[in-house]
């Protein structure tokens, strides 16, 4: 489905990814995790053909992204959906128009059908009733969900989501996770999710790729990663467990700046 070989990339003189190898199989949910600045979004941009690699190759749905013609890329774009990190909704259109845009551009459906499809997608992202608002009238989390709705409106073969649940409250974040699982189960969608929320990652992932400062540290199933002996991975996981074991009193003390409250 997606195959990345020895991908090296630069921003200016800085090397960001140092030889990434990655395969994503049809129908699987691959979650890419890693700290902030580790290169997750950069890797995603390569998977989407938005950035040219210094060396190495990316194949998406059987096409080498460095060699495809613009017409092939156009056809390819109808089969993928992308929810960007910041939503990337068009500020001059209403939420509904944003979500419908791919349909307007790529299909000949009549307006009514498109609107029904749009409302369905807004329904599953829990945004029904907001279609006539402008993106500037939405909260950050709502923008993400609207972007998600736009990403799935064409029922893509491959869905990419960059930090879909970052900054959402736990219930909505959970429901988005469930939605991701549903999309895979019901439609066999291949889904690539970038996140740094481990809970969410473990909930949805079939396999996990751990990126660390531009290197792939680990690729494997959720169980494998939990059992991994690699110190850096354990650090990554433990950070989460520590957070969960927080003592509320101590936490409050830290927040209010009190030294100790014996």
């Amino acid at each position: 489905m997606i195959e990345v070989r020895d991908l090296v990339t630069h921003y200016g003189p800085r090397e960001i990814l140092h030889g990434v190898d990655l395969r994503i199989e049809p129908g699987e949910i691959m979650v890419i995790i890693g700290g902030s600045g580790s290169g997750k979004t950069t890797l995603l941009r390569h998977l989407l053909g938005l950035k040219r690699a210094t060396s190495g190759s990316v194949r998406l749905l059987g096409h080498d992204l460095a060699a495809v013609s613009s017409l092939e890329l156009f056809e390819l774009s109808k089969r993928i959906g992308v929810a960007f990190q910041g939503g990337a909704l068009f500020s001059s259109m209403t939420v509904g128009e944003n979500v419908m845009l791919p349909l307007v551009e790529h299909t000949r459906l009549d307006r009514e059908t498109m609107e029904i499809m749009m409302r369905m997608k807004l329904e599953i992202t829990r945004l029904s009733g907001f279609e006539d608002l402008m993106p500037s009238e939405l909260s950050g989390g709502m923008i993400k969900r609207a972007a998600f709705a736009r990403a799935v409106i064409m029922d893509p073969v491959v869905l990419f989501a960059d930090e879909p649940s970052a900054g959402l409250d736990p219930t909505v974040s959970r429901s988005l996770d469930e939605l991701i699982l549903e999309l895979r189960d019901a439609m066999g969608m291949t889904i690539v999710v970038v996140t740094h929320e481990l809970d969410s990652a473990f909930r949805i992932a079939d396999r996990v790729t751990v990126l660390d400062q531009g290197d792939v540290l680990f690729i494997g199933t959720v169980d494998e990663i939990r059992r991994s002996e690699n110190e850096r991975i354990q650090n990554l996981l433990n950070r989460r467990f520590k957070e969960e074991e927080l003592d509320p009193d101590e936490y409050l003390a830290r927040l209010t700046g009190e030294r100790s409250r014996t």
């Binding site: 938005l50 613009s70 890329l73 109808k78 551009e105």
Partner: peptide
């Protein structure tokens, strides 16, 4: 400029809109 920064231009490209 705003659209580039908000990744809207990227969004156009991945939606197959030149």
């Amino acid at each position: 400029g705003t659209m580039t920064i908000n990744q809207e231009v990227d969004a156009l490209r991945v939606m197959g809109m030149n």
